[in-house]
Design a protein around this nucleic acid. Structure first.
Length: 281
DNA sequence: ATATGAGCCTGTATGC
DNA sequence: TGCATACAGGCTCATA
């Protein structure tokens, strides 16, 4: 059975939970200091630029874009955090000892510290000015699966003439921003669609179900998410565990919850994919 | 234009 | 116990 790490399980619901938590903890606080411990993240950190852009700024708000986190400051700058595979944030007292993989530390007013932790360093942190130079990654993001513009019509239209497996198409952040490998398997199970179905062969109704089930599974997960972010009280993240009821992901060989057929594991696009061969067509 | 595979890293679980 | 191997939720790049 798959063991889920305690922190940082970053698909859309996790990013949403983190963003909400950060918003609550950081809104109105002023960044008094910026420390970086290694420049080696997915994209090389630029500590001087990060410091110059953000120190002295106050946090106006924190929100989510796809799986990424954006904190807007009152000086016209913003901080983008991509969580990668193992990225996590915590907010704690600024005297709290650093953890091994806490790479970026923003010290804030009120003796608070906002830290980015990422053992695998697939994530990244960078500052930018939202009005003049949004990073390419953000500019290219597709519609948010929880918003109206991710509709059955849109999905139907964009998948025409594509032979690629729907599982892989849904992972493409330029097509829809926020679905990751786990929820991809889960939503296709709920929609009754085989992961390897060629996207271009989906019917309008298939698209309808995919859009509907994407929303459902993501919203359910957000509700279950609760408190990922350590707040002043639970700095160790002990309160932040997600309870997930995964129906197919990580359940290879186990019986389907609907029909008892053995859940299958395949690899598409280099990623593990799980489905029920009977319930999904 | 599209699809595939490699690669960035460390941590954990497994099998010998 | 040690050691080697496989695998992990993201994303980008080079190549075909």
């Amino acid at each position: 059975m798959l063991k889920l790490p305690e922190l940082g399980m970053p698909e859309l619901p996790e990013a949403e939970t983190i963003a909400r938590g950060l918003h609550r903890c950081l809104k109105g606080k002023t960044i008094t200091g910026v420390k970086t411990r290694t420049p080696k993240l997915r994209e090389k950190l630029n500590p001087r630029k990060l410091r110059a852009d953000t120190a002295g700024g106050s946090v106006e708000g924190v929100s989510r874009r796809g799986k990424a986190i954006v904190a807007r400051l009152d000086n016209g700058q913003a901080i983008l955090i991509q969580l990668g595979m193992t990225g996590a944030c915590r907010v704690c007292g600024n005297a709290e000892p650093l953890k091994k993989h806490e790479h970026v530390i923003f010290d804030l007013s009120g003796k608070t510290s906002w830290r980015f932790e990422d053992p695998r360093r697939f994530g990244m942190v960078k500052s930018f000015s939202p009005l003049t130079s949004e990073p390419k990654f953000l500019r290219e993001l597709g519609p948010d699966p929880l918003e109206k513009d991710f509709s059955a019509e849109y999905l139907f239209k964009i998948t025409r003439r594509r032979s690629r497996a729907i599982k892989e198409v849904l992972l493409d952040q330029k097509i829809v921003a926020g679905i990751g490998n786990i929820y991809d398997s889960e939503l296709l199970f709920r929609a009754g669609i085989r992961p390897r179905r060629a996207a271009g062969r989906l019917s309008k109704d298939d698209c309808n179900r995919i859009v509907r089930e994407s929303r459902r599974v993501l919203e359910e997960a957000i509700k279950a998410g609760g408190t990922t972010i350590g707040d002043y009280r639970s700095v160790d993240g002990s309160e932040g565990r997600f309870v997930r009821r995964l129906r197919v992901y990580g359940r290879a060989g186990e019986p389907c919850i609907k029909c008892k057929t053995s859940i299958k594991k395949i690899v598409t696009g280099g990623r593990a994919t799980f489905y029920c061969p009977k319930c999904q067509k």
